[in-house]
């Protein structure tokens, strides 16, 4: 038996003994933090030993197993800590209960607030038959997820498109940049939720969709504009020289050199802006909304149904992941040269 194998067995043995002893002696309640820490260290050591034995052609699979396996392990630990009475189930409902709450939210309809999570898509054929398209629209309108997504998309598009435009101009024209840079940097750091009250006053219907979308748009606008400006300014001047030397006119220079050269940084900005849009809309829905994932999360906090509150948080995270993946997919389509 070589050195490495002995170590591996030692760590696995340590893991079994540690958890066995802690459970047998009832040490988890007082020393759960130390238990989790030592468990974590041992798991890292075991994973590294295992990693050394994985043949090179299975390296990718091993790395993926770590990336997916560890979060699952965390969820299992959470579940066990609650079941063992170490964590209070009222504040930290176990993942299985959160999962059940999520399922419950998905299939049920809340008569009191006249909302559902996804808008009950299985009713679409029936509604289409009885009420036509207005019936289907009504289903969408009752959905928290679609309400949030609608606000994010509308705000993001309204903010990002002019943002790219202004950023391009600021990147290319020094006068405009000098005039606007200070102001932009100042507004950039301002938490956009802080301007929500004033935006509400500007709109005819302060409680409607207008102010919510506007604040999302403003958040996206500054992020995208500043990133686009940086992207344009960081273009290697040799590309501009090459464009000029090969006879590109102003429009050709923009279309064939400046825009594609800045595109990767522009997309980094769009990604940031999309994440921020989601953060801002959830915060706004906490404060003032009758629908939306943020509203739903806050509502279940207010009535102390914590497992559904956690389910709401999970939906927010899932939306963030899906939106980011979608944007990256579009990015890969637009920038085939960035693929390895």
């Amino acid at each position: 038996m070589n050195h490495g194998t002995r170590n591996l067995l030692l760590y696995i043995g340590g893991l079994v003994v540690l958890n066995g002893l802690m459970t047998a002696l009832g040490l988890w309640t007082s020393y759960w933090w130390a238990g989790l820490f030592i468990n974590f260290v041992l798991i890292v050591l075991i994973a590294e030993q295992v990693g050394r034995r994985v043949p090179a052609r299975h390296k990718t699979a091993y790395e993926r197993a770590l990336a997916i396996g560890f979060p699952i392990l965390l969820l299992i630990a959470w579940e066990l800590l609650v079941r063992g009475g170490v964590l209070n189930a009222r504040w930290f409902p176990p993942p299985t209960r959160i999962g059940a709450a999520l399922w419950d939210l998905t299939i049920s309809y809340d008569k009191f607030s006249e909302t559902s999570l996804l808008g009950r898509p299985w009713l679409i054929p029936q509604r289409l038959a009885t009420e036509g398209w207005p019936g289907v629209a009504a289903l969408f309108a009752e959905s928290h997820v679609w309400a949030t997504l609608g606000r994010v998309f509308a705000g993001f598009l309204i903010g990002a498109i002019p943002g790219v435009f202004l950023g391009m101009i600021m990147g290319m024209n020094k006068t405009v940049r000098l005039m606007l840079d200070t102001t932009m940097s100042a507004i950039y750091v301002l938490p956009k939720i802080a301007i929500f009250p004033i935006v509400m006053l500007i709109f005819a219907n302060p409680f409607g969709e207008g102010p919510k979308i506007a604040v999302v748009a403003i958040s996206a606008f500054f992020l995208v504009a500043i990133n686009t400006m940086v992207g344009v300014r960081d273009i290697d001047p040799v590309y501009i020289m090459a464009g000029k030397n090969y006879g590109a006119n102003r429009w050709q220079m923009f279309r064939h050199v400046i825009f594609p050269a800045a595109l990767p940084v522009i997309f980094a900005g769009l990604r940031l802006a999309l994440g921020t849009a989601l953060i801002v809309i959830v915060a706004i829905e906490f404060i003032r909304a009758k629908k939306g994932v943020g509203f739903m999360t806050f509502y279940y906090w207010e009535i102390m149904v914590t497992d559904k509150m956690y389910a709401g948080l999970f939906v927010v995270m899932a939306l963030g992941v899906i939106l980011t993946f979608g944007l990256e997919w579009i990015g890969r389509r637009l920038m085939p040269w960035m693929r390895e």
């Binding site: 290697d236 590309y239 020289m241 090459a242 030397n245 090969y246 594609p260 050269a261 040269w337």
Partner: peptide, 17 residues
């Protein structure tokens, strides 16, 4: 016909084309 064209040290060929 163009009067001149440059071959740059850093290649300066466009990565996006």
């Amino acid at each position: 016909k163009p009067l001149n064209n440059v071959v740059f040290q850093e290649y300066a060929i466009f990565p996006w084309k």
